[in-house]
Each structure stands twice: as structure tokens, then as C-alpha cells.
């Protein structure tokens, strides 16, 4: 594939790459919010809440993401037409966010549990409630420990997001497939791989910076 041809395809590839980034970042943000609640649920003294959160994590970590994606996209409307999610963005984001929440929950739980028990005791001895202690003392300390594994999860998710090409999302993988079939030539996968690398590199650098920033007190 010559350079001129590559340049004419570049806008399409870049648009695909942008969709990949948007998908990944939004999924990770919602996944992290849900993951935090799941993690707190797993640490809860309430047995029922703990069980429910355990079940969620078990389900979403134990089945392939592609299957979850197909389930949300194709199977839900079959179960009941009112469960049909509009368009491609929402089912794709939902599947990625629900899936990453399960992984992030375990990451967050491990980070919270790694905080010295004395911190919770000190907070309680000062009269803080469990919620105040978590919110002001424990969770903020877990940030720094969270950054490296969350970075890993983000990069994994960025690459896994290529699966949503299967449900008609026009992201980088799909665009690459379309160009490849047009050209009856697989060489386009190489520049697409470079774009994936560029994106993962950006995230790696950002997370290294964040880690440094949150390490100031250590």
C-alpha cells in the first residue's frame, strides 16, 4: 500500500481512533464509579450486599466480553423488546463499562485493603463515621496504589474495545477491516497498529505522570 493511498485513508482511520478513545475513556469513568461501589460493597459488613457484588464480579469476569456485548446488543431485545438499547454507542459503552467495572472493583478493593488498618482506627478514634473515614482517609490514600493497575486496565480496555466492531460500532478496528476489504490487501493493519500504539503510549505517559503526582507524600 503506497503512502498516497494511506494518506487518503488517514482521516477515516483517525476518526476510528477517536471513537476508540472516546469509548475507552467514557467506559473507564463509568466503570470506575460502579467499580468503587462494588468494591465498597465487597468490603461491606452486610453479607447480602457483599454476596450481590461478589456475584456481579464473578459473572462479568467469568464470561467473555464479546459474549456480554452480544448479550446486551442482540439477546436483551429478544427477551423483551422494551430492553432494546438505541443505536450502537449506548450498548457498546454499557458493555465495556459493566465489564471494566468488575475488574476495577477488584483493583479498588485490593488497593483499599492494602491501606494500613491503623488508618481506619485513627479515623474512627477521631470520631469519624465509616463513610467519612472511607471518603476522607482511606480512599484518597488508595489513589496512588490504584494508578498502575488502573492504567493497565485502561490499556487492556482500549484494545478490547476493538470487539465492538462486531456490533456495528465504527471504531478503529472496523474502519481498518472496511479499508482492508476494499483494497483486498491487509497492509492497512500496520498503520492501524501504529495508531493503537500511539494511543496506548499516551495513556502510559499520562498514568506515569499521575503516579508521580500522587507520590508527593511518600
Amino acid at each position: 500500500m503506497d503512502l498516497n493511498k494511506l494518506m487518503t485513508y488517514m482521516p477515516a482511520l483517525l476518526e476510528g481512533a477517536r471513537n476508540t478513545i472516546v469509548l475507552t475513556v467514557i467506559s473507564v469513568i463509568f466503570g470506575a464509579i460502579l467499580g468503587l461501589f462494588l468494591a465498597l460493597g465487597r468490603l461491606s459488613k452486610n453479607k447480602l450486599i457483599d454476596r450481590i457484588c461478589w456475584f456481579y464480579i464473578w459473572l462479568f469476569r467469568g464470561t467473555p466480553l464479546l459474549m456480554q456485548l452480544f448479550f446486551i446488543y442482540y439477546a436483551l431485545p429478544n427477551i423483551n423488546p422494551t430492553l432494546t438499547l438505541p443505536g450502537q454507542w449506548i450498548p457498546a459503552l454499557l458493555a465495556l463499562a459493566l465489564n471494566s467495572a468488575a475488574y476495577l472493583a477488584e483493583i479498588i478493593r485490593a488497593a483499599i485493603q492494602s491501606i494500613d488498618k491503623g488508618q481506619m482506627e485513627a479515623a474512627k478514634a477521631l470520631g469519624m463515621s465509616y463513610g467519612q473515614a472511607m471518603g476522607r482517609v482511606i480512599v484518597p490514600q488508595s489513589y496512588r496504589r490504584l494508578i498502575p493497575p488502573v492504567g493497565n486496565e485502561l490499556i487492556a480496555l482500549l484494545k478490547d474495545s476493538s470487539l465492538v466492531a462486531m456490533i456495528a460500532m465504527t471504531e478503529l478496528m472496523k474502519v481498518t477491516n472496511q479499508i482492508s476489504t476494499r483494497e483486498s490487501n491487509a497492509a492497512i493493519y500496520l498503520p492501524a497498529a501504529v495508531l493503537y500504539l500511539a494511543m496506548t503510549t499516551i495513556f502510559t505517559v499520562v498514568f506515569e505522570k499521575l503516579e508521580k503526582k500522587y507520590s508527593v507524600y511518600e
Binding site: 493511498k5 487518503t8 485513508y9 482521516p11 477515516a12 482511520l13 476518526e15 432494546t84 438505541p86 443505536g87 474502519v175 477491516n177 472496511q178 479499508i179 482492508s180 476489504t181 476494499r182 483486498s184
Partner: peptide
């Protein structure tokens, strides 16, 4: 979402990796 052809736009499903029946133009879009 489509309203079963009642809306003003016809939504057509294609597997657009099937030249020359349905595929992408040279802009890739």
C-alpha cells in the same frame, strides 16, 4: 433507533466489507 420504516429516513443494514455490492469509497468513510 428506527420506527419500522415509519420515520422519514430509511435505515439500511449493510455488511459494508463486500465489494462491489457494499463497501467503502476511497476515503474509507
Amino acid at each position: 433507533d428506527s420506527g419500522s420504516g415509519t420515520s422519514d429516513v430509511l435505515l439500511v443494514g449493510v455488511d459494508d466489507s463486500y465489494p462491489p455490492m457494499e463497501f467503502k469509497d476511497s476515503d474509507g468513510k
